[in-house]
Amino acid sequence: MDAKTPVADQLIGKQQRSMRLWMFVSRYGTLAAFLVMAIVLSFVAPGFLTMFNILTILRQISVLGIMGLGMTLVMAGGGIDLSIGEAADVGGLVCVALLAQGWGAGPAVLAGLAGGAAMGMLNATLIAGIGIAPFLATLGVHSMVRSLEMAFTRGGLPIYLNRAMPRPLIFLGRGLVGPIPTQVIVLAVLALAYYVIYHRVTLGRYVTAVGLNREAARLSGVSVNKVTATTYVLASATAALAGVILAARVSSGQPLAGGAYLLDTIAAVFMGRTISAEGRPNVLGTLVGAAFLGTVVNGMTLLNVVFYMQTFIKGALLLGVLALASFARTKRG
């Protein structure tokens, strides 16, 4: 418009510059912090930059990464799943309990995944069917399933097998393909699958539409409830697979083990949001977030940071990431 005065032009220019700076910081802040941290760690932490340690980090983040994939989809649809850790527990416990009953590896793993999917359906019913706010519904399920786990394992005793784990599960939990841990390959395959679902298929577009504006999505003919339900079922089933891997890694079913991954999973997805141009949850970003968190924990362990300091540092990191993601959103909006 030609009615603009030069002063106003200048002001707008200035605003745009500061906005661009913010977009830059929020978009590349996470990556830059990751890079700086890795460089610092490779100097101060002995053994950080060895091939062995990097493979260890990758192995450590694969469970988190797999759980993060499902969470990415849920959060892209505008929801959240606070019971994702328990879905992993259900997967692992059901699988190991059935192995202990003499089931074969294949059926036991499938049953574990089915258990996870059933939990996802419960979440989906409460959220899409009844209309409970996602964080409350999944919080309720979270505490109920935890309680059932305690009852099922007589107060939290791990389930051990009185024979060796079946071969395929050992391969899944501790095996290598060439130099690369099997679970890292599982993560890569699942990430590819999620990438296709989310970024290349209609379902993914619907999820995004529901996450951006439920009402508009409904009016455009998307069956919002079905899409929402699908995200929760997929997320729980995927987390159950992570739980199976975790159980295979430690050769036992550990009750209440998955809960520890909840905040890390949320943090990974939020970190991922900051590196996408639209500030939305995305598959690649979640993987970067998981790698970031895994590196932080690995570094703190190498530097002998005591465990209670680790809780605090991770909490502070999560807050920082949330703030960054939120800044990014407000500046873009």
């Binding site: 409350l136 519904a137 919080l139 505490s143 309680s147």
Partner: peptide, 16 residues
């Protein structure tokens, strides 16, 4: 361990 089962269920009932 059943106490949290009851409470979690109640949360869902109340919020529903």
């Amino acid at each position: 361990f059943y106490v949290n089962l009851v409470k979690g269920l109640l949360i869902i009932v109340v919020v529903a």
